[in-house]
Structure formats: C-alpha cells, structure tokens
Amino acid sequence: MILDEDKNIVVKCRHIKKTYGSGESKVFALRGIDLDVYQGELVMLVGPSGCGKTTFISIISALLEADNEGFCRVLGEDLSTLNSQEKTYFRGHSIGFVFQAFNLLPALTAVENIAIPLLIQGVNRAVAMKRAQTILDLVGLTSRSQAMPGELSGGEQQRVAIARALIHSPKLIICDEPTSSLDHESGQLILELLRSFVKKEGKTLIVVTHDNRIFNFADRMAYMDDGRIVKIETNVRTPDEKLL
C-alpha cells in the first residue's frame, strides 16, 4: 500500500494511455489522462461517443489494463502491479458497479441478485440474504424482494443494481450510463439515491454519462474528447441541501 500525500485521494491517474489493436487498425482510445478523484466526491465523465470514457473507467476498475506509460493508483493500489487474481479480489472487495443495462441475472430474484457480491466473497448464504434484504429496504424496494428482474421496471431494476453495488461496502462506485435506459423521473431518482449514499457514507462515485438532465448532481465534471480530459469544472449548482 502506497500512501498518497493526500489521504483523501481515491483515484490518482497520470498519463494513462490505451491503444487497441495494432498497425493499420490501431485505435488510440486514451491519449494521456490525468485525473484525481477525492473521497466523498461525485465526479461525472462526459464527452462525445467514442472519446474513451468507458475505456477509462474500465482501467480504473481494474477490468482493463492500460498501456505501460503512466500510472493509475486506486484506493492506494497501483493497478499495474496487481496480477489478475489480485485484480479480481480488488474488484470484488473495493469496487461497486452500476451498468447502463442493469446486468441483473435474470434467473435470480431481486434479493438474490443483490447478495451476489457477498456470495462471491464466500459469505454464508443466509447472512448474505439478510444483508441484501436490508439494502433492498434502503433503496425502497422492500416489497419486491422476491420479484424476478423481468418483473421489475427499468428504474426498479437499476435500484436493485445499486443495492448490489453497495452491499459489500465498496469505497468506490463506478457507473456507466446509469440513466440512459431510464425515463427522466427514474433517472433523477437513481441519481438522488446514489448521491445520498456518497454524501452519507463517504463513498466515492464516478459516473459516465451523456444525460445532461443529471449533470446537476455532480460535484465535478470532467469533459473528455478524443482520449483526453479537456476540461474539469467544479459544479456550483449542486442541490446538496435538498438531498441531505
């Protein structure tokens, strides 16, 4: 564990580069990204399609390996030094994921889906299910615990997904387009929910989005274009008070 000068720093990236393929078909997805994200912060990554947002959060969440230049330290771990087993462990314990497509397992009930991260860690099923029920209550779906994903609305599914991202108390939560499959109202609800967790429990949240209706939930906005962060803006219009 390497201590950063600033103990509140959760993500520290310098000169992150990523190329896909080689020769003729080589794609420069990331051309050198510098970004710091602090604890308790909600950072939004925005930018045109294909600018490298997903690539970047994949690297931060140890799903994808960056090119050799630069470094990326997340929660004190230098990701380039982890082998694949350590990365798996790191993801399973430190990161929570929320996806655009929800990605719930269709054959499992809502509460079982939520329990998955704990089950993966080897937690006893009864304990995991009990904790899952508690989290389900927090996202306001107490009565839907036995529903299958197919029986839930998009907004409800995403709330289940959020519960799943939180159950193992990860310090960092990564969301890719969490609202683009949802209507406006559900999208607002999801962001309110996420933001309240960040602020109450001191989590850190990185959200990739195209959805300008939720920009006002961000503490900071990082604008990306063509593999670079072109602008970082601190959002002064955050309706914190309303939420807390």
């Binding site: 969440s61 694949s84 087993q85 798996t88 993801r91 399973g92 990605n103 991260p117 993966i120």
Partner: peptide, 11 residues
C-alpha cells in the same frame, strides 16, 4: 458481470 464483480476464473 460475475467476473467484474470479483468472481475468480476457477469459480
């Protein structure tokens, strides 16, 4: 999805 959430290859 399971792999992203920390399921090992052997699992």
């Amino acid at each position: 999805v399971l792999k992203a959430m920390g399921a090992s290859n052997s699992m």
